[in-house]
Design a protein around this nucleic acid. Structure first.
Length: 306
DNA sequence: CTAGGATCCTGTCAGC
DNA sequence: TGCTGACAGGATCCTA
């Protein structure tokens, strides 16, 4: 579920709240979600959080023990930070990730897999309905050697900057285009979802970018020009930027000011989960199809297969 | 090497 | 009201 913009939103939110905090205790309710050996726990308890980083969809919390906690939220992960004795919507609190009502519930609940308590009595809950997500611990200097991080393709731009860069660098274009072209017979949507080709694109931003570039997701790579592929990367980047700048999938966007439930996709999405609604460009009804084994949303008029 | 499908899990929703 | 199957904002593993 959470893609690069969602994880970046979490990074920004937790960075403000966690740096300098000392871990007092960790409660593991689901072993599968906490892939850390008992003997390595000494690197966690009593350690202080130094920084919060991100690479692709992986969140990294660096500790003063020179170990790093790694989080992957996969489809249904959430991170929920709560101050003691505070109202749920108090802006000292923070929740982001898969948008469900867990954000507003007493915690831990049945989806809570692991939670951390800090010295000031604040808590960080890792909730994950489907249990695909995980937490790992590695020496900080070994983090980037891990296969799943080492093999990642480039990010389109550096989204961790406060001011997100306007332009994609020429070296990134070249690197990503040559990686895309290694999959000449595959549908373009499948290729941009491959984290080894380009890091951080998931189902939402794939659909949004393809709509922006007017490319049918089932078009095979060899039928696309470099110009079309460059346009696609620009559109993905624009959609991700709008998502991050609108606050992403946070509790603040989930609960509207009048108390009703909002949908953060409304803040930036043109096609994703909008089947049956008019295309914002040509008013044709958006349809849902299957491409690369994933639900896929397109405008059947704007996005014609080559 | 690439391409495509099954798989890990829990919950929800449409259709009978 | 059950029940059943499809599906879900991810990525790996297996086979051809």
């Amino acid at each position: 579920m959470p893609e690069l913009p969602e994880v970046e939103t979490i990074r920004r939110g937790l960075s403000k709240r966690l740096i300098g905090q000392k871990i007092k205790s960790i409660t593991v309710l689901e072993k599968k979600s906490f892939q850390i050996a008992d003997e390595d726990r000494i690197w966690l308890e009593e350690s202080v959080i130094k920084s919060v980083r991100r690479r692709a969809k992986v969140l990294m919390i660096d500790l003063d023990s020179d170990y790093t906690l790694l989080f992957h939220l996969k489809m249904t992960g959430q991170l929920i930070y709560r101050e003691p004795n505070s109202e749920l919507t108090d802006n000292r609190n923070f929740a982001a990730g898969h948008p469900t009502g867990d954000w507003l519930m007493d915690l831990p609940n049945k989806s809570t897999r692991v939670y951390f308590e800090f010295e000031d009595a604040s808590k960080l809950f890792f909730n994950d309905q489907r249990k695909f997500g995980w937490i790992k611990l590695l020496p900080t200097e070994k983090v980037m050697e891990q296969k799943f991080l080492h093999e990642l393709g480039p990010e389109i731009v550096d989204f961790t900057q406060d001011k997100i860069p306007e332009k994609i660098s020429e070296s990134t274009y070249k690197q990503v285009l040559s990686a895309i072209r290694r999959h000449n017979n595959a549908p373009i949507k499948a290729v941009i979802l491959d984290q080894k080709v380009v890091a951080g694109i998931g189902n939402i931003y794939a659909d949004e970018g393809l709509w922006g570039a007017k490319i049918h997701p089932a078009t095979v790579v060899k039928d696309l020009t470099d110009r079309e592929l460059r346009k696609l990367l620009r559109e993905v980047k624009a959609s991700m930027t709008r998502s991050i700048e609108s606050g992403g999938s946070t509790m603040q966007t989930f609960v509207k000011a009048d108390g009703t439930k909002g949908n953060y996709l409304d803040l930036f999405a043109n096609v994703f989960r909008r089947e049956g609604l008019p295309c914002p460009r040509c008013q044709t009804e958006i349809i849902k199809i299957r491409v690369a084994g994933r639900g896929t949303h397109i405008c059947p008029k704007c996005q014609i297969k080559h």
